[in-house]
Every structure is written in structure tokens, then in C-alpha cells.
Design a protein around this nucleic acid. Structure first.
Length: 294
DNA sequence: CACTTGACCTGTCCGC
DNA sequence: TGCGGACAGGTCAAGT
């Protein structure tokens, strides 16, 4: 489930692989995965060169020399995998790729470049999308999305002011809300709340300044560590070369219900908060009755 | 208006 | 072994 660290990992990979390559042809299997008018595709995608690859929240932007941008959202099971079959790997090349020969049955879009290399957009559950749009319209797409947590101007006070726009909701729901903060999903919400010792159901308005500072610190630590580990691979997620990420080996609570809390040894539990599976330590992340959502 | 739930999908896992 | 149903969760629309 690609969140900020996964999408950023893909971005870094693609930004090394794609710039300078010119689009030769595009295949797509349905118009839901590939949101683009055919004439726009011919005019602004075919023959355009990839200039660079950027990220905003959980979206990737392939900036094109045509002045258009190919925006990609991987949603739950999306993958963007680059293949260059014209390059032969020598014997003993480490094969830690999670994906096999491409295209496969989950392939929704294939972009072939002039040099023969290809970019595959795979998406088992078809929630993800690719959309071709003018670069000038990107600002509108992002206008309601919250700040990027890894930018240097994202301070704990920024976090506080964003959170306090929703003082009556649970902290977990607020963290998952992309209008509050960009890029956090279920894994990193649970991990950072454990790090800050805050119960996910705590009402935002009841958080102390100290708790928000701890949350800010924990959030940055978790996101940075995950990027360092190449993101979290549960089932589907892979980077631009098809390789898995290893963050889940370092996760403290996510998918660890029944195991001891790394901090206090109490058995971790899985509950449901804000409609999501939620992992926490009932001892480290206490919930007093006056702090819960009604 | 603020917040929660359901729909979108498909593969996987569980119990019978 | 086969089958039905629950579950996974990012986001938006619909519902409370």
C-alpha cells in the first residue's frame, strides 16, 4: 500500500531511469486506469521526453518536454516498474525482484520508449490511475492537499495548526486525511502514534503540545527510516526496478498484533479506528475515558 | 458542517 | 477440495 516512503522510493528510482527517454508508444487496457483523451496522448505524450520525476503527497508526476505531466496514483496495489530488456545482466545478478516477466495480468498501461525500454503500470485492483494533464493545471490538483511532512518548513507548530482544523476527530483519522497532512497512510499513522505514545482514538483537541511535538518527531523518524529501507512491502509494493522494500522488518506495531511491544513487552493489539485496522500497545498508548471520540 | 461509512476492485485466507 | 465470505486500505462520494 504505497504511502509517502514507497512513492518517494519509486520517484527516486524513476528519476534515475527515465529522464532523457522519449516516448514511442502507449498501450492501455481501460480508460479508468488511463485518464487521457486519445488526441492528447498523440499530441503531448507520444514523442515527448521525460524531463524529471517528482512527487506530491502519494502522487508521482512524470514531467514531459511537451509541457504536460503524467500524474500517477498507485492507490492500493499499483506498481510502476521500469524494464530495459535490451540490457543483459551477467550471471549472478541479484534477483530480488518481486515481479516476474512483464506484462502480466495486472498490467494496465505500458509506455514504450524509443530506445526499447518500457515502463509498466501494474495494478491488481484497478484503484490506481494515470492521468495526462497540462503542467499548468497541477496547482489546482494539489490545492487542497496538506503540507509535505519532510519539507524543512514542516515544524511541530505546522502540524499542530493543521491538526487543529479538525479538533473533534480522532488523531488517527486526522493523520490519514490528506487535506491535513500529505503522504501518511495506515502503516505510518500506526507507527508514528506508537512512537509518540498516543492512542489512535485520542481526540485531536485533547492532545497536549508535548504530545504533538512527540508526534512530529516520531512521524519524521518513521518516514525517513522507511525511505532508507526502500519502503514497506506487504504484498504488492515494489520500487521502480521491481524490488521489495524492507521497512516492515523494522516496524514496531504494524501487523505485529499478539507480539510483545518493543518498548514495554505488553502484548500488542489490533483494533479498528477510523474504519481502519489499527495496531497499538495498550500500555504505552493509554486512552483515558475523557479523551476518546464519543 | 463535520465526520463516518460505502464503493471501487481482486487476490488471499479462513472456516465449514 | 470447493465455496462463500471477510479482509486488505487510498480516496472520493454518499450518508448520518
Amino acid at each position: 500500500m504505497p504511502e509517502l516512503p514507497e512513492v518517494e522510493t519509486v520517484r527516486r528510482g524513476l528519476d534515475q531511469l527515465l529522464p532523457g527517454r522519449r516516448v514511442k508508444a502507449v498501450f492501455h487496457d481501460n480508460m479508468k486506469s488511463f485518464l487521457c483523451a486519445p488526441e492528447d496522448m498523440r499530441r503531448y505524450l507520444v514523442d515527448a521526453e521525460v524531463v524529471r520525476v517528482e512527487r506530491r503527497a502519494k502522487m508521482l508526476m512524470l514531467q514531459l518536454s511537451s509541457g504536460y505531466v503524467l500524474v500517477v496514483h498507485l492507490k492500493m496495489t499499483g506498481q510502476l516498474v521500469f524494464r530495459n530488456d535490451t540490457v543483459r545482466f551477467g550471471a549472478g545478478h541479484p534477483n530480488d525482484s518481486l515481479v516476474g516477466p512483464l506484462p502480466d495480468k495486472s498490467t494496465r498501461v505500458v509506455i514504450t520508449f524509443v530506445d526499447g525500454s518500457r515502463l509498466f503500470f501494474n495494478d491488481q485492483r484497478k484503484f490506481g490511475w494515470m492521468r495526462l494533464m497540462p503542467a499548468s493545471t497541477l496547482a489546482d490538483l494539489f490545492k487542497d492537499i496538506g503540507p509535505e511532512p519532510l519539507r524543512s518548513d514542516f515544524t511541530w507548530k505546522t502540524l499542530r495548526s493543521r491538526l487543529l482544523r479538525h479538533p473533534r476527530t480522532s488523531i488517527k483519522a486526522a493523520l490519514l486525511d490528506q487535506h491535513v497532512l500529505a503522504g501518511v497512510g495506515n502503516i505510518y499513522a500506526d507507527e508514528s502514534l506508537w512512537g509518540a505514545r498516543i492512542h489512535p482514538q485520542t481526540v485531536v483537541g485533547h492532545l497536549s503540545a508535548l504530545q504533538i511535538r512527540r508526534l512530529h518527531t516520531a512521524l519524521l523518524r518513521v518516514l525517513r527510516l522507511s525511505i532508507e529501507k526502500g519502503g514497506s512491502t506487504d504484498k504488492n509494493y515494489v520500487d521502480a526496478e521491481g524490488k521489495r522494500g524492507s521497512y516492515l522488518q523494522f516496524a514496531r506495531v504494524f501487523r505485529r498484533e499478539g507480539l510483545p511491544c518493543p518498548r514495554c513487552g505488553t502484548t500488542l493489539v489490533k483494533t479498528r479506528v477510523a474504519g481502519r485496522g489499527t495496531h497499538l500497545c495498550p500500555y504505552c498508548q493509554p486512552l483515558s475515558s475523557d479523551m476518546i471520540t464519543p
